[in-house]
């Protein structure tokens, strides 16, 4: 079932610069999609539009059948809080809050807020699933990059969102930590069944996804669905090959 549908979306900053050009793509419920592309290909713009952070110049985006492009600020705020979870390259944890408090913070803004006890338990469970349960009461500055990103992942999932959006989630991590974080990301996806969309440059990160969408000049140039039988190496090779075919530099 299509959860999020992008239909003929364009984002024009100036007559000469089309960040997105009549782009159409859809995301199935429970899918794990990686969006790849070189710098300026429009992947971040697409991510912003998907999450309701920006509005397209033309085209429509529908979530669960509701067109979100016409939502007002309050509706979008509610949407981000209830339907989306965000993970960033820079983690963006609030430095004055402990890991547990950082995870809990999105629940402060939900309309039907569960009890504090329930929220704390849920946050603690998430931290434990990400193997940082023992760091629940530690401030971010005392955590390593990988630990901070895990806290951010837990924060993205605390409100049980429909979609988790991750922008270069491993961009600030070393390759070893990246693979651990991505494995945990994948585990959570399989365990919780949320729809995941990640933007990345890294084919080894993209290989964790079920599908890779490659963009160039604001257009979708390739759609690579992977089967569960494909190994990580095979997936990486396929991505490399497709990137080369599209004239994109392989990192």
């Amino acid at each position: 079932m299509v959860l999020l549908d992008v239909n003929g979306v364009s984002k024009i900053y100036s007559p000469r610069f089309y960040a997105l050009n009549n782009l159409s793509v859809s995301f199935e419920e429970g899918s794990f999609t990686a969006i790849m592309g070189s710098s300026g290909s429009g992947k971040s713009t697409l991510l912003h539009l998907l999450a309701g952070l920006d509005k397209p110049t033309s085209g429509t985006i529908t979530l669960k059948g509701n067109e979100i492009t016409n939502f007002n600020d309050n509706q979008l705020t509610r949407l981000r809080n209830e339907e989306f979870g965000f993970v960033f390259q820079q983690f963006h944890l609030l430095p004055v809050l402990t890991a547990l408090e950082n995870v809990i913070i999105p629940t402060s803004f939900t309309k039907h807020r569960p009890s504090s006890k329930e929220i704390t338990a849920r946050a603690q469970t998430l931290l434990e699933r990400l193997h940082i349960g023992h760091l629940a009461h530690v401030l971010p500055k005392k955590l390593s990059g990988g630990q901070q990103q895990r806290v951010a992942i837990a924060r993205a999932m605390i409100n049980k969102p429909s979609i988790v959006v991750a922008d270069e989630p491993t961009g600030s991590l070393d390759s070893f930590t990246s693979s651990i974080v991505m494995k945990e990301f994948k585990d959570l996806h399989q365990f919780l069944g949320y729809t995941m969309i990640i933007v990345t440059h890294d084919p080894t990160v993209a290989a964790f996804a079920d599908r890779v969408v490659i963009m160039n000049d604001g257009k979708l140039v390739s759609n690579l669905p992977f089967s569960t039988s494909q190994s990580m190496d095979q997936k990486v090779k396929t991505i490399h090959h497709t990137q080369l075919q599209n004239g994109q530099m392989v990192e």
Partner: peptide
Amino acid sequence: QQLAVLRLVGASKRN
């Protein structure tokens, strides 16, 4: 940026 994060995770302007 911290305020922007709060907005992103669901804080309204009023919040």
